[in-house]
Simulated scan of single mutants.
Amino acid sequence: MTQDGTGAGFAGKRILVVEDEMIVAMLIEDILMDGGATVVGPAARVNKALDLLGTETVDAALLDVNLAGENTVPVAEELRRRGIPFAFATGYGAAGLPDGFTGQPLLQKPFQERDLQEVISRVLAG
C-alpha cells in the first residue's frame, strides 16, 4: 500500500501491462508493485500480450493504445471477451480511444503516480 492508501486495492492483483516505451513501462511497474500488485509483462507487442493472456492469470490490464504503430485493439477485444477489466493509456485523450471502446477508463499520458493509482483502482473496482 502507498503512504496515502491509494494503492490498497492492488494487493494480490495480477495486472497485465502493455507498453512499448521501456521507461514508461518501468514507471508503471514500480507504481503497481509499490501498491502490492504483481505485474504481468510488460509486453511491448500485441502478440506478446496475447501470449501472456493465454498463459498467465490476469485480474486487470493497462494498455497503451499504440505500440510503435501497432494498435492494441486485438488485446482489448480479448480482455473484453474474457471479462477482464482494463484501461487504456494514451497521450491523445478520449479522442485517441479506438472505436467501440469510448467508455473505457483512460490514463492520460503524461501521468502522475496518483493518476495511475486512481485509474487502476477504478478498473479493479469494476
Rank of each mutant, 00 (worst) to 15 (best):
M26P: 13
M26I: 11
M26R: 13
M26D: 14
M26E: 12
M26K: 14
L27G: 08
L27H: 09
L27N: 12
L27F: 05
I28Q: 03
E29Y: 07
E29K: 15
D30S: 12
D30P: 09
I31G: 02
I31Q: 02
I31N: 01
I31V: 13
I31L: 07
L32M: 10
L32T: 05
L32E: 06
M33P: 10
M33A: 15
M33H: 11
M33V: 15
D34I: 10
D34L: 13
D34Y: 14
G35P: 07
G35E: 01
G36H: 15
A37T: 12
T38I: 08
T38W: 00
V39C: 07
V39S: 06
V39Q: 00
V39K: 05
V39T: 07
V39L: 07
V39N: 00
V39M: 08
V40E: 04
G41D: 01
G41R: 04
G41V: 05
G41N: 07
G41M: 08
P42T: 02
A43Y: 03
A43S: 11
A43W: 01
A44P: 04
A44L: 07
A44G: 09
R45E: 09
R45N: 06
V46S: 05
V46I: 07
V46G: 05
V46C: 07
N47P: 09
K48V: 15
K48F: 10
A49D: 03
A49R: 01
A49C: 08
A49P: 01
A49I: 04
A49S: 02
A49H: 00
L50C: 08
L50W: 06
D51M: 01
D51S: 09
D51L: 04
L52W: 03
L52A: 06
L53R: 04
L53V: 11
L53D: 02
G54E: 10
G54M: 14
G54H: 10
T55Y: 04
T55R: 10
T55A: 12
T55D: 05
T55H: 07
E56W: 06
E56C: 15
E56I: 07
E56V: 08
T57G: 12
T57A: 12
T57C: 11
V58I: 14
D59E: 11
D59M: 04
D59T: 05
A60C: 08
